[in-house]
Design a protein around this nucleic acid. Structure first.
Lengths: 385, 385
DNA sequence: TTGTAAGCGTTATCAC
DNA sequence: GTGATAACGCTTACAA
């Protein structure tokens, strides 16, 4: 609903236009008139170019006029002229997944601080291609893509766009990623230290890089430690609570002798589902079975017992992605130094190589209540330290 | 990173400009040239005005040319000319709160379907005023404000904006709200039916409408049922897990005789915190104490025992807010019928009255594992049905 | 039915 | 330093 109407700044205009401008915003023109300077001068002063050469006296007059009139730049118009929208797109698989919510939160924060708007796209219902299309039409300066591989999208969908991936390493696109292999390795090492040798992994069949690497890191570390790990030991299910529940149910259907003594889940959501299935089946965690999750979302501390997991700094990931993307963009107006490669180029050249190859952001083991020494070999059930 | 470069559409332009246009997008002009019609004609055909009067033959030529050239409208430019950005702002207190994530998810979905972009603003770090300011500069067509009262913002902050509130009834601004009083009442009635008379409420001190009303509905229904309810029975704490934990700890510090037999929490987050505090203190839920939450976020089913709560359809709330807002906007290009009040007006007039006064979206009790008959009076502990 | 002309609000290029 | 003038890509009277 339109509330009230702006203070009517009566304009120096022919009467014909006066009626029409009742609801008009104040523009650079108005400011120029008021300050008694030319319109482009106002643009120079207010345009964000901090060290533009304009007399201090003039500058002050302009600023004063702008303030008095309550001038607000029209970012749309600026975008058209500068061919830059100062907006970035953020495409995530599903906002309702707390892990992605964290990522969005982190990215939004730095974007807002840097003066960029965030166009949020949730791919869970509308589909990535359509979103990408609308982001294109809106001329976003860049896009952050989370867990949506270029492979599935096709080269063409990203052509001509400034893109940063999250958790999807690529040789042609800058990315930001957590140490997914390390996460799997940490989980394995923790379980091995607790004496577990017969372990399982549960994760989605979907080809999402982070999940794949968590699995790989886990399996490799397990094998290195001499634990057997054949294909029966991995269970496929969606990376959701329901998926984890189903996978665990299936796993428990195995006889207790066959059953693994510990399981690593591709993410916390699955782990929590697994926990639920255990509770339902009367299997006590961690006495009868150890469970390790991954991500360390808040939920991990809310279940009983609290979930042992590998902490992945999702918010930081989102923040880094935003920073990486924004740094990629041609020099900002806000005094970002003379590193911009001139305004005549529409976007930066492809930048492969070291600068865009970030180190993976580190993960760490958080030991809580769902892991314990393996019953058969340990000195009896007990909390892990 | 900029990937590849668009198919170079060589343009009928003086060589001086040719170099510059290497990376150029194809515009209406190009399409016009290709189709052999004037530029405005293209605009007419492609401009979304479905029943614009243009010869079928011409229209087809234009469409063909556009397709061949891979024309994509520039929404920024269109926005400038139409004085409409086809974008809406969405301001929430904190994306990491699953309840708000649901709301955003719902709003984003319908916005995307209706062809609007969503500018996401998380007020947890940057502050609502700053966000509102940037949304203004971006000329969003409207804004959805969640749990951010106009009272705290000040009239001026919203002046001249199309706004829809979520969970913040107002006589001047359209809003969408859940039946918060009803939620409190349902909780009370449930507890009363289980025999509870000594009950408590925990909620934030912050002046958020929905929380206030949940409390009011609860207290009133309790009093109606003849239960005592004095001010000692309400505990103030932030509506978070930590808040709920602290509040419950304090409550448990009361002697067991003083202590209430049941507590209603302003939201599920608090309830889960309360549950944790109980577990830590060795208080068994629901045997020793019943707990009712509010919202029914996914988390409610993930704790043990599962949380009895009042379901609030957050996603639906978000979706409705978006629909309400979009309906408010002047007639869309996409054949929304001739109801728009002419394009010469910059936005609709204030519309108070019936059309903008939606019925509250209904809530309902979801009985799970954290409520049971009151121990002293019932026939012993037992699950509620 | 189609084309011509005039913006929308801002930035950028140059002479002055 | 400053101020005309021409874009930016699209829309929309109004004229043909």
């Amino acid at each position: 609903m339109r509330i009230g109407s702006p203070a009517n700044t009566y304009l120096h205009m022919p009467p014909a236009k006066a009626r029409r401008s009742v609801n008009r915003r104040v523009t650079v023109r108005d400011v120029a008139a008021r300050a008694g300077v030319s319109q482009p001068t106002v643009s120079l002063v207010l345009g964000g170019h901090p060290r533009a050469r304009v007399a201090t006296e003039t500058r002050e007059r302009v600023m004063a006029a702008a303030a008095e009139l309550g001038y607000r730049p029209n970012v749309i118009a600026r975008g058209l002229a500068r061919r830059r929208s100062y907006a970035i797109g953020l495409l995530v698989p599903d906002l309702r997944n707390p892990f992605y919510a964290e990522i969005v939160s982190g990215a939004e924060r730095v974007a807002a601080q840097e003066g960029y708007a965030v166009l949020l796209c949730d791919a869970s219902e509308v589909g990535p291609h359509r979103h990408l299309e609308t982001l294109r039409e809106r001329l976003v300066d860049g896009i952050i893509l989370d867990a949506v591989g270029a492979s599935e999208l096709g080269e063409a969908a990203l052509e001509g766009l400034n893109v940063v991936f999250i958790d999807e390493p690529s040789s042609r696109v800058p990315f930001v990623a957590s140490d997914a292999t390390g996460a799997g390795r940490l989980a394995a090492q923790h379980l091995i230290a607790l004496g577990h040798r017969r372990v399982a992994f549960m994760g989605p069949a979907a080809d999402v890089y982070a999940f794949r690497m968590r699995e790989r890191g886990f399996v490799q570390a397990m094998r290195v430690a001499g634990a057997t790990f054949d294909s029966e030991r991995v269970r496929r299910a969606p990376a959701t609570v329901a998926g984890g529940m189903a996978a665990m149910r299936a796993m428990l259907a195995l006889g207790v002798a066959q059953r693994p003594t510990a399981v690593f889940c591709a993410n916390d959501l699955m782990a929590v589902g697994a926990l639920k299935a255990c509770a339902a089946a009367g299997v006590q965690v961690p006495r009868d079975l150890s469970v390790v999750g991954c991500d360390d979302i808040e939920l991990a501390t809310l279940v009983t017992p609290e979930l042992t997991t590998i902490a992945v700094p999702a918010r930081e990931l989102g923040a880094r992605a935003a920073r990486t993307l924004i740094r990629l963009l041609p020099g900002d107006a806000e005094a970002r130094g003379p590193e911009g490669r001139g305004p005549e180029t529409r976007g930066p050249e492809p930048r492969t190589g070291p600068r865009s190859l970030p180190r993976a952001v580190p993960v760490k083991l958080v030991t809580r209540g769902t892991t314990a020494r393996v019953p058969e070999e340990g000195t009896g059930p007990g909390r892990a330290t």
